[in-house]
Design a protein around this nucleic acid. Sequence first.
DNA 1: CGAGTTTGACCCGCGC
DNA 2: GCGCGGGTCAAACTCG
Length: 441
Amino acid sequence: MENSSASAFFDDIPNNMNQESYIVDFPFSPALPSCSVFDIPPPPSPLFDYHNVNDASFAGNMDLLISDDFDNSWFSNYNFETGTSESLPAATQTDMQLPPLPVLSPTANPAAPVSGSSLNTSLWNEAGVVANKPVAAVAENAENGDGVKFVEGKNARGEAEDSDGDRRIQVVENGNDQTPAKKPLKQKKNDKKKKRTRVTFMTETGFDYLDDGYRWRKYGQKPIKNSPFPRSYYRCTTRGCGVKKHIERYAAEPLLLLTTYEGKHTHLPPKVTRATHLEIMNDAIADGVRKIHHNQIKTNGLGVAGNQFAMSQLQQQQFQNLNQNVILHRPALSPLSNNNDYNNSFNIAPTVNVNSANNIPPLNVVNSSSNHNSQLLNVVNSSAAHNSPPLNVVNSGDKFINSSTTFSEFLQNLGGCNFSMFTDDLTSNNGLLQDMIMPMK
DNA sequence: CGAGTTTGACCCGCGC
DNA sequence: GCGCGGGTCAAACTCG
């Protein structure tokens, strides 16, 4: 295997069939704010006002979670109540404006689950499916009394907003402190009314249900005030596990799906666990890269310098087999994007190269095109021959910058392998949405 | 037949 | 106290 030494453009990729392994240069882009629930911009970011996350511009940027990719010391200094931090400079609201989103029509059963298999790599070809991209997550820790939640009519400072009915994000204090002696909830058996940690993920998706690896039973659906979209209630089907979630579309941005989890699973997910992924990827990527920091050059265990990793043929196959149902994430749009970019990006279906020998579909790699500094995904191959399928690249065209501004998100795009965890405890970290929550203190 | 969904009824907190 | 809205229950229903 040789190191990558030159940039290979996307048109080259289909020709890369006969290679033992791939070395992927991942282009970190410090110039762009990160756009994923799995990532948070390097602190402090002059590009994004973490506090003013109260309208459509937050889509793709409402980073309230922290990955271990970052030195997150700034986060603890940030006061969500006042919206201030000594470590954060003044920010502007001019960055990362998303183009208009297509309007979804409410359906009779908008929260009806779709099968996991429909969330595979072919979703890029499916009509109406724009993307599945976690663009934000909101943690509400009701146990220690602090948290963040959606409220109506107030912004993140708790100030009254205009009366457009938009929901805002607000730090809330609730829970078990010495507040108001309110009439206690009527306790039902098993203390069902006890408040637990809630975390809301916002996912930009045309799907009404995202497979998160756990099994759920729907137990209710309610219309929501000021929203054409109902909220669906689900309970984890595992006996003894009281975790619930509810799903609704964000009325102001119908493409945003809000998934709120309540509670913590007492069991491993019945589906593919991240531990397996991590084993493979750890083997493939080797130590060090998983914790790589932005703009840092490290060496992985395969002797590949730089922000790279390599997967052997077997590893690729294993990885693909384990990621048949992963959610691919649409790249977020940069400030440079325009509507045409947005539209074009989804009209381009990936070339599906199915290996004739093993019939394993290739991974789809979402990436940007040229004309942007440090935005190229360079795929360089070693010389050895093999039969595994190539990486599949969706080339979105000029002026469209993908969201893979961090290594972790790149991996996310690559196959749903989430490396931006808040723990290195692989036994408890299954790589699912719920596992990527950093409790707020 | 079991598992999951649908859907109207019911419960509860909260604001007025 | 009343009504509203969110959350839950559970019987009926659907599906494999």
